[in-house]
């Protein structure tokens, strides 16, 4: 079985490499951003991009996927910059030479959502780690992303040493996006760790409440990383630099700080100090 898998893996790699062979003509006015679903689905990028495009004349093509896939696409040379939220993966991306520099530019908080009656009694926990322990002790149902996304990595960090086994009846490893996991949590009266932005934008369809919102271990930092033109072919470096500069500038900062206030009564993202 293992040998067979190894052979298949090799075959698959050959196919992948073959697919990566051709590089396209670089069009200077197009910037390819590979980002995570939380930034795009919360509406932040669709809100910011028209302003940027208007000001600079660039066209931004956004590909949104889980952090793992978002980074892989950039490694394959299919993006000019990435906007993700998983520090360890980002540092690896740079260490391997794919990225130039990690620029944390905004953050928000993860929240633990669950059924309004809070069956595991996590409401008064001091941090997410304590809440997770209570969920484990009471064996209340917990939906894990299980997809190596930024949010899943945050979950794993909170569990620390003792990550529950996926064959425990109460711990469900869904391997799906945030929206699908929240829907599942709502169906199964389960707890789930989510970024606040995605939760608030889906809340209307969900039978869930924010149970724990504060805790020093729940900070969620987003970074911009320009792809390294020395390592990858066909990178629009000028475009990537222009985008990063604009995103970290005063105009974007003011827009980000306002985002969400109108629709949800609170900001969804805060600027990094």
């Amino acid at each position: 079985m293992k040998k067979l898998l190894a052979v298949l893996m090799a075959l698959a790699i050959v196919f992948t490499l073959a697919a990566c062979g051709g590089t396209s003509e670089n069009e200077n006015k197009i910037i390819r951003v590979s980002t995570t679903t939380s930034v795009n689905d919360s509406g932040l990028l669709p809100y910011l991009l028209p302003v940027f495009e208007e000001a600079t004349g660039y066209t931004v093509e956004v590909q949104s996927a889980g952090t793992g896939a978002a980074i892989q696409k950039a490694k394959d040379g299919n993006a000019d910059l990435i906007l993700v939220h998983s520090k360890a993966s980002e540092e690896e991306f740079i260490a391997e030479g794919y990225g130039v520099e990690r620029l944390p530019f905004m953050y928000n908080y993860f929240v633990i959502v669950g059924p309004a009656d809070d069956p595991a009694g996590i409401k008064d926990s001091v941090n997410a780690a304590e809440a997770f322990d209570k969920i484990e002790d009471t064996e209340a149902t917990f939906i894990s992303r299980g997809d190596e996304s930024g949010t899943h990595k945050a979950e794993l960090k909170i569990w620390g040493e003792d990550v529950p086994e996926a064959d425990d009846e109460w711990y469900i490893s869904a391997g799906q996006g945030m929206g699908a996991c929240l829907t599942m949590a709502s169906e199964k009266d389960a707890y789930c760790l989510t970024d606040k932005a995605t939760f608030l934008s889906n809340k209307a369809d969900l039978d869930l409440e924010i149970i724990l919102a504060e805790g020093e271990d729940m900070k969620n930092t987003y970074s911009l990383i320009e792809c390294n033109p020395e390592k990858l072919d066909g990178i629009n470096t000028e475009g990537a630099k222009a985008f990063i500069e604009w995103m970290m500038g005063d105009e974007a900062s003011a827009l980000i700080a306002e985002y969400g206030k109108e629709a949800y009564g609170e900001a969804l993202f805060y600027l990094a100090e």
Partner: peptide, 11 residues
């Protein structure tokens, strides 16, 4: 695929 393990997904 979502994890970014494209080769493994293909396998």
């Amino acid at each position: 695929t979502n994890k970014g393990n494209f080769s493994f997904a293909l396998a």
